[in-house]
Amino acid sequence: MDIKKYVALIKATDLFKDIPYEELLTRFTFDSYSISNYKKSSIIHFEGEKCLFLDIILEGHVIIQRIDENGNALTIVDFHSGDSIGGNLLFSKYPYYPMTIMAKTATKILHVKKSLVLELCQLNSTFLIEYLSSISDKTAILTNKIKVISLKSIRDSIIDFLKYESFLQNTTNIKLNITKKELAERLGLQRTSLSRELKKMKNDGLVDFNANYISIIDETIIK
């Protein structure tokens, strides 16, 4: 694919923002990158697959999931346009994806070869700083998410979600923009466990809910 069609999208990312247009055209030779389109719900990288590229999301929404032997999925983190994937693995001695990476929506990804990433790190200090920052941030995100999942009770996880959404939506009547299944995956729960705990919270007079909303009845839980 002709890189010229995508330069505007590439320069909109933090990694490439400081690299001039003409230099991008020069660096992105036909054998240094590829661009792939992924349909909604398709697998981008399987767990255990070797990381060969730095992936830049040009368009779309990507999720990283941990799928157990029973097929239960735990959504660890979401990435969107401008985010990069694989930077922490590309130069690792064990460069294999520890989790499954899936397209949440139709997604377009720029795959940058290791040789070009190394070249850009050596030639452009802003790229190097942003690359290192990205690696650090993603490591912190993954560590914190795993820590939260391992320590919190089901009710605590639900309440944290309600606190966050109540703040964002500025209401105690929380509109669910995702399905109950997706919410369970985000919280690291089985859907049945989520439903069971919501019913207990309803019986305790803390919340009320239907398919589209969770209403906070006892506002002390989000204080």
Rank of each mutant, 00 (worst) to 15 (best):
I44S: 08
I67E: 13
K200H: 11
F30W: 00
L176Y: 04
K199Y: 08
D83A: 12
N70T: 12
N144F: 14
N177Y: 12
Q169M: 09
K163W: 02
D14P: 07
L25N: 12
Y96P: 01
S84V: 12
K108L: 05
L176P: 12
I129S: 07
I10V: 14
I129D: 06
S153L: 04
E59N: 10
I221K: 05
D218M: 10
I221Y: 10
L132H: 05
L206Q: 06
L168D: 07
L132S: 10
D78G: 09
A8Q: 12
L206A: 01
L24S: 09
L15S: 06
T105M: 01
M102S: 10
G71W: 08
E197L: 13
I76C: 09
L9S: 14
N173I: 09
T172C: 07
I221V: 15
S41C: 08
L187N: 07
T179Y: 07
Y131T: 03
R191F: 01
S136I: 08
Y213I: 14
H61S: 10
S32G: 00
I57G: 02
I154P: 03
I216V: 14
N173D: 14
S153F: 04
I64K: 11
T107V: 05
Q169Y: 02
S215C: 03
Y97L: 10
S34Q: 05
L52M: 11
Y33S: 02
P98I: 08
K39N: 09
E23M: 11
L194Y: 08
M1R: 14
A211D: 11
K108W: 01
I109D: 04
F46A: 13
K40C: 07
F91D: 03
G82C: 12
L15A: 03
D218K: 04
Q190W: 12
I19S: 05
K145T: 12
E47W: 00
K200Y: 05
L132W: 02
Y33R: 00
E69D: 10
K145Q: 11
I217G: 03
L118Y: 13
A103V: 06
R27L: 06
T75S: 13
K145S: 04
D18P: 01
L90T: 04
R66Q: 08
G82K: 14
I76S: 08
T75L: 09
Y94N: 14
E130L: 01
D137T: 13
D78S: 15
K17G: 01
N170W: 00
M1C: 09
M102P: 04
T179K: 13
K181D: 04
T171H: 06
E197D: 09
S166T: 02
S125E: 10
S136K: 09
T105N: 13
M201W: 11
K181V: 04
Y213Q: 13
Y21P: 07
G48L: 10
L194C: 04
Y6A: 06
K39H: 05
D2S: 15
I135W: 05
Y97H: 13
I149L: 10
N212A: 13
G60V: 07
S34G: 00
K50G: 01
G48C: 08
E47D: 03
D68A: 05
L128D: 03
S157W: 01
S42K: 14
K199T: 10
N173V: 10
